[in-house]
Amino acid sequence: METACFLCNALRTITPECSCGEVMLDSGPVTDYTGPYSPYFNVSFASEYCLHLFTCPACGNDQIIAVPLCVIREP
């Protein structure tokens, strides 16, 4: 069964609110900051979630949000 992150693949967006009241921006998957660079690094997920880093443009706070993966079904 293949899975994909709907945020990484621009299928949907989410807009979490920071504690200061501003909307946080998606800064991408955490693996972009901690893992080796490879355009295919996230092709095979070992988890049911993709961890995304969200950053507040106003106060600079960061928050990691676990985004559930969606199942890709073949036609």
Rank of each mutant, 00 (worst) to 15 (best):
L25P: 00
V30H: 08
F54D: 05
C56W: 01
F45S: 15
C70P: 00
M1K: 15
A10K: 14
F6S: 12
Y40F: 14
S44G: 04
S47M: 07
P16C: 09
T55E: 15
S38C: 14
P75S: 05
C18R: 05
P39D: 07
N9V: 02
E22L: 06
P75M: 00
M24V: 08
P36V: 12
P39A: 14
Y33I: 02
F6W: 04
N42P: 01
L51T: 10
D32K: 07
G35A: 15
L11N: 04
V43T: 15
S47R: 10
C50T: 09
P39W: 03
E17S: 12
P75I: 00
C20F: 00
F6A: 14
A4L: 05
A66E: 08
E22Y: 12
L7H: 06
F45Q: 13
F6L: 11
F45Y: 13
D26T: 01
F41H: 14
P57K: 14
T31A: 13
C18I: 03
G35C: 10
C5R: 03
I65Q: 09
T55P: 02
L51K: 13
L25T: 05
T13M: 00
P39T: 12
C50N: 12
E74Q: 06
L11E: 04
T55I: 10
E48W: 03
D62M: 06
A58D: 11
V67G: 02
L53A: 15
A58Q: 09
E17P: 01
N42Y: 03
I14N: 08
P39S: 10
L51P: 05
N42E: 14
Y37P: 15
I14G: 05
F41L: 14
P57T: 12
F54A: 09
M1R: 14
T15Y: 05
S27Q: 13
C70T: 12
E48R: 13
Q63F: 00
N9T: 11
C5D: 03
P75L: 00
S27T: 01
E48D: 13
E2L: 13
Y49C: 09
L53F: 01
G21V: 08
G21A: 11
T15P: 00
P36Q: 12
A4Y: 01
V43H: 10
D32F: 03
G35R: 09
A58N: 13
C56T: 05
S38P: 03
L7G: 07
L7M: 12
L51W: 01
D32I: 00
A46V: 03
P29L: 10
T31H: 04
D26L: 01
R12C: 08
A58T: 06
S47Q: 12
P16F: 02
P29A: 15
Q63H: 06
L51C: 07
F54C: 07
H52Y: 02
M1L: 13
L7S: 08
G28D: 03
F54I: 02
E74K: 05
C18Q: 06
C56Y: 01
D62K: 07
D26A: 06
A66H: 01
C18P: 04
A4M: 05
S27N: 13
S47K: 06
S27Y: 04
M24D: 08
H52P: 03
S44V: 11
E74H: 04
F41R: 15
